[in-house]
């Protein structure tokens, strides 16, 4: 895919993800007026009309929301939403192709870091290597979506295996850049990981927004090593 095609695909995906996020806020009366214009902007982004202006407007909107919620409303998923919007905004502002590529490469590198750093900071901790940390996530953290899921804390063997599967995948993720087929495989596994997090921990917004960044990495791999 050429860079303009990648940006086109990512813009549509970002528009859909932001529309999903915004629509959820329409359920509550207080923020309805704040999120309705964002929903409309997201749908306009999907349509492709005035793509640059709409992307810039969504970035500005992201800053307004940071002030409204005194930080991200939804932690890492809001940060990734803003990062993708910022990189697409920079792409549209860039004076030439080289700077456009830099904007997309920055996003691709951050995506790789999102897995590698997350795996690295776990694997250096004894409680993660022993599986105890993941047991604690299920036992008493606020993340499991149901009480029944807390029962998984009583299966330390399974959680030890899951801990190593997640940490191993995350720290080895950068190696997938060495071959296009390996990268596609790694992205399928990563998407499945986010899907599991959405089901078990209710992190549905992470699933959609991380998928939005994947085309940048496919382009980056091809541009740098292809």
């Amino acid at each position: 895919m050429s860079l303009p095609e990648v940006v086109q695909v990512m813009s549509v995906m970002l528009g859909l993800a932001v529309a999903q996020q915004s629509a959820e806020h329409l359920a509550g009366a207080r923020d309805r007026l704040l999120f309705l214009p964002r929903l409309i902007l997201a749908l306009v982004l999907v349509s492709g009309w005035q793509q640059a202006w709409v992307t810039w407007a969504l970035f500005a909107y992201g800053v307004v929301l940071l002030h409204r919620f005194d930080g991200p409303y939804n932690g890492g998923s809001d940060k990734m939403t803003l990062l993708i919007t910022a990189c697409l905004s920079a792409y549209h502002l860039a004076p030439d192709t080289r700077w456009q590529e830099m904007a997309m490469a920055y996003l691709a590198v951050q995506l790789v870091l999102s897995y590698f750093v997350s795996g690295y900071i776990k694997i250096i901790k004894a409680e993660w290597r022993s599986g105890e940390a993941l047991c604690d996530v299920f036992r008493f953290s606020a993340y499991p979506v149901s009480e029944r899921l807390r029962g998984w804390a009583e299966r330390p063997g399974v959680l030890w295996l899951m801990s190593w599967a997640v940490m191993g995948f995350e720290v080895l993720f950068p190696l997938s850049l060495l071959h296009p087929a390996a990268l596609i495989g790694a992205l399928v596994v990563a998407g499945t990981f986010h899907l599991a997090n959405a089901c078990l921990f209710g992190l549905n917004r992470f699933f959609w927004i991380w998928l939005c960044a994947y085309p940048s990495l496919i382009w980056f791999q091809d541009r740098v090593l292809g």
Binding site: G76, L113, Y115, S118, K122, A133, A142
Partner: peptide
């Protein structure tokens, strides 16, 4: 304030679940 809110998104630390802190 805007810069302090924006920087963690533009330069993320990605340290998800570094430790399982008090919940």
């Amino acid at each position: 304030k805007t810069i302090s809110l924006l920087l963690p998104a533009l330069l993320p630390s990605w340290r998800f679940f570094k430790t399982v802190a008090a919940s």
